[in-house]
């Protein structure tokens, strides 16, 4: 029982990171019908920025907003300068551009911050470990039904729930949210009611990347360091979560992320011999294939004519 609860808590906190990644993917997908393959690397860049802020002595409470603002700007500029011009040509061109961006950002991170996990005393890092948003010492846990749950897990989970609530309000109670929903539903008509669709798409990419940045920072905090391959698996789990929840459903993305986080940890824990730590990523593969074959619109998505 205790073990189960611990695994559940670990799963939920891991799943929270996937949920953040999935949210970013879904927000972009809703607006433009594009799957942003660079989402993980864009988040990683912001995570490195937060690390750098830490090196400069900026506390995490301030560094995180800086990272998210950088993320917003990165997303918005990407949409305007790279995605919009090629989107007119073909979806394939957009796919290639996001892939190129993936490669470019991964190279850029290495070029600026070197090809090794940070913080690292070998390259003169001031910080001992990547700053965590929540207490993360070995003694920081609470006991529920005899299970020791890390405070960090609880904090991450609550953070994601709060963000989901905020996004719910954004989508359902604000003009910006209404405009985003309208563009997602019918971009042509959105123009005809006077919505600046270009602006909406730019802001969507900005928000998505800022959320991704949050996910990257949270994950690096759990992981205690940031490195060049940090987001590869997070991206694929996030994609699996978005697939499971439905690519046009933000709520589905969050739930999908949590479900996958839990499945992953349970599979690795209970089927240790077969799945173990190495094959956890197989869970994502299986989920993606099965969902796409059985119910391509996911749990909460709306079935649409495929746009690609």
């Amino acid at each position: 029982m205790e073990l189960f609860l611990q695994r559940l808590a670990d799963g939920l906190s891991q799943g929270s990171v996937y949920a953040l990644m999935a949210l970013g993917l879904v927000i972009i997908y809703r607006g433009t019908g594009h799957l942003n393959f660079a989402q993980g690397e864009m988040a990683l860049f912001c995570t490195y920025v937060v690390y750098q802020c830490g090196e400069w002595g900026i506390p995490i409470g301030l560094a995180l907003p800086i990272g998210m603002v950088v993320g917003f700007a990165l997303g918005a500029v990407t949409e305007v300068a790279l995605i919009r011009p090629v989107a007119k040509k073909s979806p394939f061109a957009v796919f290639i551009v996001t892939l190129g961006l993936f490669q470019f950002l991964n190279w850029l991170d290495g070029a600026i911050w070197r090809d090794q996990p940070l913080p690292n005393s070998g390259v003169g890092s001031v910080q001992q470990q990547f700053p965590s948003l929540f207490p993360s010492k070995d003694t920081d846990f609470i006991t529920i039904f005899g299970a020791d749950i890390k405070l960090q897990s609880v904090g991450v989970f609550v953070l994601v729930l709060a963000l989901t609530g905020a996004l719910f309000l954004l989508f359902n109670k604000t003009k910006l949210g209404l405009a985003m929903n309208a563009v997602a539903s019918n971009a042509e008509s959105a123009k005809l009611v006077g919505i600046r669709t270009n602006m909406v798409l730019m802001v969507s990419w900005g928000i998505a990347t800022a959320i991704g940045a949050l996910g990257g920072v949270v994950f690096a905090g759990i992981n205690h360091n940031v490195n060049l391959t940090l987001m590869f698996t997070v991206f694929i789990y996030g994609s699996a979560a978005a697939t499971l929840g439905g690519f046009d459903s933000p709520g589905g993305a969050v739930l999908g992320g949590l479900i996958i986080g839990v499945i992953e940890n349970m599979a690795a824990g209970y089927a240790d011999e077969w799945v173990g730590q190495q094959l956890k990523v197989g869970v994502a593969f299986v989920v993606i294939v099965v969902v796409l074959l059985v119910k391509p619109s996911g749990l909460f998505g709306t079935a649409k004519v495929e746009r690609v």
Binding site: H34, L35, F37, P91, F95, F232, T233, I236, S239, A240, T243, L279, V281, G282, A284, F285, I288, V289, L292, L293, P296, E306, V308
Partner: peptide, 17 residues
């Protein structure tokens, strides 16, 4: 049955697995 970027996603996860 799976096309376009979705197939890209499936193959990407295959490459990761």
């Amino acid at each position: 049955r799976i096309k376009g970027v979705y197939l890209a996603l499936v193959t990407l996860s295959l490459g990761l697995v």
